[in-house]
Design a protein around this nucleic acid. Structure first.
Lengths: 216, 216
DNA sequence: GTCTATACGCGGATAGAC
DNA sequence: GTCTATCCGCGTATAGAC
């Protein structure tokens, strides 16, 4: 066995391959041995780049959140910014649904998540929302986006009519959802997002339907 | 060692203890050895009551969803029913946040989840929503509720001011969220729920802002 | 219905050679 | 920076005695 002259590993390459494993088979499938095997090295070599496995998972999460476009925040009017940002956020999450439960635990110390939280909150406060309300809106949006990316609603139904028709009269056609799951989930997300932001607009201080000024 | 004269185990007792383990330490902490130890038996005894570990997890999920009150559906006007149901749904989920990622995979074959899906969908259709919209509303509500129960938004911030003040100007006070996490999350849920249902009311067919009237 | 015994593989992490 | 060797515990599940 010839030892390599140039480094086989880098943090970037480790995170990339680790993400692929988690996406394909879930967080539980990510083990140091498995990861090392796919990288063509032995497991202990990973510890030259990360102190613990948890650091690797943190890095996966940070890379995902770092890909979310935040440019509309503070640029577009807040309702429009909130919509575009929510779509970008969901896209990033949906590409990695197995990581969503981990990401939903909060920003903790991950820089990309803190940047995101800062940008959303800042944009809402700058638009005229009272700080406490801005916090709540940021949280509510995260609830909705995380939930929508956690798993498919439509795919949760089994593609077998006989399961439903007997005992659940209204679900007669539920078995058809699985085949169109992407459209169903996309449409549900858009409907919910629209309702949510519409509903928030009506609550905007001194703007909510009674006229008056906006930004301060 | 005296062998017992009366059964030590039952499906109910197993599910009860298993739920407690998952709530306290997460789904990964649930192992057959651990579960058996807390039940005062040896691991193989569990296989007299459940064929696999997965069946146990299914039973945990079913028991949780079975506790959700559905009585308001089809009784109260749909916006009010949707609100009460969402609160009941969230309460059930929030008591067991570690199970939420599992539950969010969909109703599958779990009877309680199918009853729930049937009741929500049926109530919306009966109220006058077109079937496709009713599906989307059910999905959007689940997104929001699941996301809100997946983990605390407020607890995701570390209670250490120095982490934020330097690099994230708007998060200057974010470290205070952790201490009030229950109130913050409750208020965010209520704000989002209110906005969501308000927004849906405006879309109700023959009520949506063009023709007929409804409350505004 | 519960037990003992057991099969067999995977898990994270460390020490120390090269 | 990567390797080999190794520690030690935990995981699901089965066979067969009582």
């Amino acid at each position: 066995m010839v030892r390599p002259r140039t480094p086989l590993l880098s943090r970037e390459r480790i995170v990339e391959v680790a993400t692929a494993i988690v996406d394909a088979e879930g967080l539980d499938a990510l083990s140091t041995r498995r990861l090392a095997r796919e990288l063509g090295v032995q497991a202990p070599s990973l510890y030259n780049h990360f102190a613990t496995k948890e650091e690797i998972v943190d890095a996966i999460g940070d890379a995902i959140v770092a890909g979310v476009d935040l440019s509309m925040l503070g640029r577009d009017p807040w309702p429009q910014a909130l919509r575009s940002w929510a779509r970008a956020y969901r896209s990033a999450f949906r590409a990695h649904p197995n990581v969503v439960p981990f990401l939903a635990r909060g920003p903790a110390r991950r820089p990309a998540s803190l940047r995101l939280a800062d940008a959303v909150y800042g944009a809402l406060v700058d638009a005229g929302w009272p700080p406490a309300q801005a916090t709540r809106i940021g949280a509510a949006m995260r609830y909705f986006v995380a939930g929508s990316a956690l798993g498919s609603f439509a795919l949760g139904f089994v593609d077998d009519p006989s399961l439903y028709e007997a005992d659940y009269p209204h679900l007669r056609d539920a078995h058809r959802l699985a085949g169109r799951h992407a459209q169903v989930d996309d449409a549900a997300f858009e409907l919910g997002l629209d309702a949510l932001v519409d509903g928030l607009e009506r609550k905007f201080p001194s703007g909510g339907g009674l006229g008056g000024r906006h930004q301060e």
